[in-house]
Measured scan of single mutants.
Amino acid sequence: MSGNGNAAATAEENSPKMRVIRVGTRKSQLARIQTDSVVATLKASYPGLQFEIIAMSTTGDKILDTALSKIGEKSLFTKELEHALEKNEVDLVVHSLKDLPTVLPPGFTIGAICKRENPHDAVVFHPKFVGKTLETLPEKSVVGTSSLRRAAQLQRKFPHLEFRSIRGNLNTRLRKLDEQQEFSAIILATAGLQRMGWHNRVGQILHPEECMYAVGQGALGVEVRAKDQDILDLVGVLHDPETLLRCIAERAFLRHLEGGCSVPVAVHTAMKDGQLYLTGGVWSLDGSDSIQETMQATIHVPAQHEDGPEDDPQLVGITARNIPRGPQLAAQNLGISLANLLLSKGAKNILDVARQLNDAH
Score class of each variant (00 low, 15 high):
T269E: 01
K227F: 03
S290I: 15
L285R: 10
P309T: 10
T145L: 07
F125E: 06
K140E: 14
E139S: 09
L343F: 10
T78N: 09
Q181R: 12
D99P: 05
K227W: 07
R255W: 12
S45K: 15
L81I: 11
Q217I: 03
A67V: 11
V222G: 02
I318E: 04
V103W: 15
R167P: 03
T243P: 05
E73S: 12
F183L: 14
Q229D: 13
L285D: 14
H120S: 12
K227C: 01
G218V: 04
R321G: 13
L104T: 06
D230L: 03
R225I: 04
Y46F: 12
A249M: 03
G192L: 02
D99H: 06
T243L: 00
E293V: 07
L170C: 08
L285S: 01
F125M: 11
G274W: 11
I231E: 02
V235K: 01
N349H: 04
P159K: 10
A266K: 08
V301K: 01
Q181H: 09
A55E: 15
Q229R: 12
S262H: 03
E82K: 06
P208L: 10
R321F: 14
P313I: 15
S147A: 00
W283I: 06
P309W: 06
A360M: 02
V142R: 12
L341P: 04
L193I: 05
Q328E: 13
D286N: 14
C261G: 03
T279H: 05
V215I: 03
V235Y: 04
W283F: 02
S45R: 11
E223L: 10
S75G: 12
V353K: 00
R149F: 07
A219L: 01
L49F: 02
A339R: 04
T136Y: 11
K348Q: 09
Q50M: 15
R251T: 05
F51L: 11
E82N: 10
T279N: 14
L342E: 03
S288W: 14
L351T: 13
A331G: 15
T190A: 13
P324K: 06
V123E: 01
T59P: 11
V222C: 10
Q217R: 03
E258P: 06
L134A: 08
K132W: 13
L232M: 11
K43V: 15
A67W: 01
V301L: 00
I186H: 08
L161I: 09
L220F: 07
A214Q: 01
G197I: 00
I113C: 11
L104P: 08
Q328K: 13
S57A: 05
P309V: 15
R167L: 09
N200W: 13
I323C: 11
G280R: 02
I350C: 06
E179V: 13
T172I: 08
A189G: 09
H300N: 13
L206Y: 02
L100E: 13
D91V: 04
P241Y: 01
L238N: 00
R167M: 07
L100R: 00
V263W: 02
I166S: 07
E89S: 13
F77L: 03
A297G: 10
A252C: 00
G168L: 04
C247S: 10
T41L: 09
H207D: 05
R149Y: 08
T136W: 14
C261W: 04
K128I: 12
T66A: 14
P106G: 10
K43E: 09
L342G: 06
E117F: 12
A297P: 00
I231W: 07
